[in-house]
């Protein structure tokens, strides 16, 4: 097995495409610009992911996409063997990873540069961006060099 998680850049074109419309489209559009942004309330500063139209904490509609550091750590993950999406499993089992960002919200993503067997809870990761054929881009994560492993 390679040190990748099975959906390496070679398979990127075959992956399901990220959405381009609605709030989800806005989320992924930032990835194409090399940024990870999450929605935050301008009034009470609460982060919301997935994004909302009204802040559930303070009722404000002053919501905008704010940059985050892109640093986080692995919270949980799965390794998919069954061909739910045959093009994804064609290159072998692949990992889907939940990352807790430094700012608090969690995102479901995947990791590069580490095999599924090497994943551990608390693994420090840093965001990276991958182009997608005919789509915006995907925020993926890589182990953070120099960061202390748990």
């Amino acid at each position: 097995m390679s040190t990748d998680t099975g959906t390496g850049s070679g398979a990127a074109a075959d992956r399901p495409r990220p959405p381009t419309e609605g709030l989800a489209g806005e989320f992924f559009a930032w990835h194409a610009r090399g940024q990870l942004r999450l929605q935050r309330c301008g009034q009470c500063r609460r982060w919301s992911h997935p994004p909302v139209l009204t802040c559930p904490a303070c009722d404000s509609t002053d919501l905008s996409w704010q940059p985050v550091s892109g640093r986080g750590e692995v919270f949980t993950w799965t390794v998919t063997h069954h061909p739910f999406h045959p093009r994804l499993t064609a290159a072998g089992p692949y990992a889907c990873v939940v990352v807790t960002t430094e700012e608090g919200p969690r995102v479901l993503s995947t990791v590069r540069g580490v095999s599924p067997e090497q994943l551990t809870a608390g693994l420090p990761v840093q965001v990276d961006f991958e182009p997608v054929a005919d789509g915006p881009a995907l925020a993926v994560f890589r182990p953070r060099p120099g960061a202390e492993r748990p």
Partner: peptide, 13 residues
Amino acid sequence: DYYRPYGTVAPPQ
């Protein structure tokens, strides 16, 4: 919108 782009498509995942 948020899971499928990374290959999480079904309930067992």
